[in-house]
Design a protein around this nucleic acid. Structure first.
Lengths: 119, 119
DNA sequence: ATGAACTATGAACCTAGGTTTATAGCAAGC
DNA sequence: GCTTGCTATAAACCTAGGTTCATAGTTCAT
């Protein structure tokens, strides 16, 4: 598969595919080079990139994904579990903050926030 | 009050105070210049900046704050109410996405996500 | 009255996750 | 064999919310 086909199958722009490679989150086993230096992807790249999209959507950074991908061998199940649990905690913190923010905005609408008088 | 005192009272770095002014979210009534071009702030700036901090924390952008602040006169109560309601909707969208993300990560921990096998 | 501390400005720099541009080498259809 | 299209790279650009730097004028304490 050449890069254009991967882009079509994953919905990711070609520029993003090259960017991910630069960021070191595409293992070599998914992408080789042909005799003219063109990228040649294996079929499994599609599922792999779907995983990457999912991780990004659940608030993993590219750097964190890079760690998961590249330390694959020495990263134990326990370590991966910890990473996921940590991420869940982060999401819960964001949820708490969001809840407060919503309460504040509702108070503004109700006129119970002392904010309106100033702004 | 000079900029250093405002920084101490609000906890905002001096650089941020100057940055906010550049971004046009500090009304003139809160900041004048003395004979040497030094900024001279009124006492009310502190409460005003607390409001700004609150708005930023509930997901308003500096540009949105600028609109609220600068169109103060021609922005009706209804328009402001709409702006707050819109922001609440945005927060709710983020909440929904966050909920999905957490569910996904829990599924990963449970082993019910088909993701682990690949990564 | 002089050196340290405070103020000012514009411009460059920072992170994150990409996108765009300039330039050049292959490829495929007519 | 030529034109259009695909591929490659490095480097610059983008947004947002700031921070840092270089340079210059001001003020305070000794």
């Amino acid at each position: 598969m050449k890069i254009n086909e991967v882009a079509k199958l994953t919905g990711l722009p070609i520029s993003t595919l090259r960017f991910y490679e630069r960021k070191n989150i595409i293992p070599d086993k998914f992408v080789q080079r042909d005799e003219h230096n063109y990228r040649v992807y294996s079929e499994e790249i599609v599922d792999f990139l779907d995983d990457v999209k999912t991780l990004l959507s659940v608030n993993f950074s590219i750097e964190e994904i890079s760690l998961l991908v590249n330390q694959e061998l020495n990263l134990s199940y326990e370590a991966k579990k910890k990473s996921v649990e940590q991420k869940i905690k982060e999401l819960e913190d964001i949820q708490k903050q969001l809840k407060k923010s919503k309460a504040f905005l509702h108070a503004v609408l109700d006129g119970t926030a002392n904010f309106q008088t100033k702004c």
